[in-house]
């Protein structure tokens, strides 16, 4: 059986006053039905642009310049624009970070949920209403009948995000794209919203692409993970492998830059410098100038995403992909050294 969604070598360019901003530079990913994959990376690494390219909803001047999107084994890339957008939006829905701006402030939330069943699926008014209430119930909104008539500003952030999820579900998608769905929420509420998304994935065998900058959130909700840096996937694999055996220095550093809530004071690893300007990406590995392990070769070739020797599911785009395992033997003192060096 072919995966639900396959993306091959996606490139997105955005024309800017002096040249082209290469926002996405060859991203490939796959999602199966009932699978949840995570995309992490720092701000500006192209996570949102990738998602929007999948839906055909890129911001104005941006354009997909290369790559293919295969949905259920059917390559939709060649379809005429209107038809492609329809096929893609029928199969996928998106949840955004800011639920307050994602909702129409002057429309009752229930009507916003009922809109798609009514307009696109052609349900009667009462059937659409019943459907909306059912969806609200499914995403865990208590007293859905009463809240049907609420306006967005009358609901708390967590409730609003659930409304957004209900709207996303109303089109009966098979894949949900969630762009930082919980970043604006408090931790206690975040846990609930993630739980809702995860339950839907299990119950409806939905595919989920969850974008976040929080590795812990991803590790709790996804089975596979893609780490993006400067418009590329630089490491991907099953979540456990990746967390335990990170092969790419960026992932390695990222994992140690976040404080662990369960550990007392520990020195955090920092990543010096800044990501490259995507309008003029230098030759070689784009992480090289910031990399603690860079060697002269890193400035010459940009390493491709290569499977790790004994794990075909785990790939890393680092020149040291072969030798990297030895990091595992590093003692805390070695890492401390690294901390002092950076």
């Amino acid at each position: 059986m072919s995966p639900l969604l396959e993306v091959h070598d996606l490139h997105v360019e955005i024309p800017v006053p002096h040249g082209h901003l290469h926002a996405v530079r060859g991203v490939s990913l796959t999602v199966d039905a009932g699978e949840s994959i995570g995309v992490v990376g720092e701000s500006g690494s192209g996570k949102s642009i990738t998602l929007r390219a999948l839906l055909g909803l890129l911001p104005q001047p941006a354009q997909v310049t290369k790559g293919s999107i295969v949905l259920d084994g059917v390559d939709v890339t060649g379809l005429p624009e209107r038809r492609r957008t329809k096929v893609l939006t029928d199969a996928m829905s998106m949840i955004f970070q800011d639920s307050l701006t994602a909702l129409n402030p002057v429309m009752r939330v229930g009507d916003q949920i009922a809109e798609v069943p009514r307009r696109r699926l052609g349900m009667s008014k009462s059937a659409a209403h019943a459907r909306a209430v059912e969806l609200m119930d499914q995403v865990g909104i208590p007293e859905p009948e009463r809240r049907f008539r609420a306006y967005p500003h009358q609901l708390s952030g967590g409730m609003r995000q659930r409304v957004c999820i209900a709207i996303a579900l109303s089109a009966e998608p098979r894949l949900i794209l969630a762009d930082e769905p919980t970043t604006a929420l408090d931790v206690t509420i975040q846990a609930q919203v993630l739980e809702v998304i995860d339950r839907l994935r299990r119950d409806r065998r939905l595919g989920v692409i969850l974008v976040s900058h929080d590795l812990a959130v991803i590790s709790q909700t996804c089975s596979r993970i893609y780490v993006m840096y400067a418009g590329r996937v630089i490491e991907s694999g099953r979540i456990g492998d990746l967390l335990a055996l990170a092969r790419h220095p960026y992932t390695f550093a990222l994992l140690r830059a976040v404080p662990d809530p369960d550990l007392p004071v520990h020195r955090l690893l920092t990543i010096p410098g800044q990501p490259p300007d995507l309008a003029a990406v230098p030759a070689g590995c784009s992480f090289a100038p910031r990399c603690a392990f860079a060697e002269p070769g890193c400035y010459e070739v940009d390493p491709a995403l290569t499977p790790v020797p004994d794990d075909p599911d785990h790939a890393s785009a680092c020149i040291r992909v072969e030798t990297a395992p030895q990091w595992l033997d590093w003692t805390p003192a070695d890492v401390l050294d690294l901390v002092e060096k950076t």
Binding site: P17, T270, P272, G273, Q274, T342
Partner: peptide, 16 residues
């Protein structure tokens, strides 16, 4: 401070 990253200063390429 040891370990303080002296990030490079962002170049100012703005339309103005």
């Amino acid at each position: 401070v040891p370990g303080s990253a002296t990030d490079t200063v962002v170049p100012t390429t703005r339309r103005r």
